[in-house]
Amino acid sequence: MSKEKHPLSDYLREDRMPHMWCPGCGIGIAVSAFLNALKQSRYGQDDVVLVSGIGCAGRVAGYVKLDSFHTTHGRAIPFAEGLKAASPKTKVVVFSGEGDLMSIGGNHFIHAGRKNMSITILCVNNLNYAMTGGQVSPTTPAKAITATAPFGSFCQPFNLPFIAEAAGAVYVARWTVFHVRQLQKAILEAIHKKGMSFVEIISPCPTLYERRNQMGTALSRMNFYRENTVIKNGASTKDAVMDLDKPFIVGKFVDDDSKLTYLEAMNEYYDTTFSCDANYHTYTGSKI
């Protein structure tokens, strides 16, 4: 019996399949979108490293056939920054979840934006901590029920595109896993930006979030995304709030990578400062 080859088999660790994600989870769609974007991009398989934190989306690093790093909880971004600084030619992509990147790793996120390190951050936002059993995450909408908010969350959630823009991201987009083509295009754009680019990927968590909040199956959630998202490219990120069961906007909100990246700024500065110093060379990496 001949076995059909998966179109992404060159980019997946097939010896690690089946993966550990639940039926109906959107992370697989997000991974496909990323890998398809990568195939279309100017990067070869050896030009890219993928860095994940901890959580369901953190497991992405284990399934892609790239040099990949499954780091500690919340610290994918500083790991990625160190790697990028040592090896500036490498394209560094962070792929993780909203609990990992925006709660425990939230400070690293805003500082990566300030530094404008040239990394791409792909954030799967499924509105709760899934791997640990569905607790409140920084994006859980008010009134949504989770394991640690059994009567509904009473805090206002983060609006991730707004934070990303405020922190200084050069590219900010949000799509759901229903918007596969737009998502893939956004990732393709994001990985070619210089500076910190950010794509929020809204995904269902049918096992925990949707079930607890009686939102139906993964399929009905996809329908919700279709019917309740408003594509609004160029919208103000202030308007990207997500309320429980209310329509929300998706699209590309920020796209301007004209400002200097961390390494560009450092080199521009030091090229002048040390112009008379024979020992100085423009920094190109610190491989042994």
């Binding site: 500083p78 160190g82 500082h111």
Partner: peptide, 18 residues
């Protein structure tokens, strides 16, 4: 931004070749 970031950034740098 803090020591936590510092202690993992160096490990990213090591895998980056430094």
């Amino acid at each position: 931004e803090d020591e936590i970031a510092s202690s993992i950034a160096i490990q990213g740098a090591v895998w980056g070749g430094a």
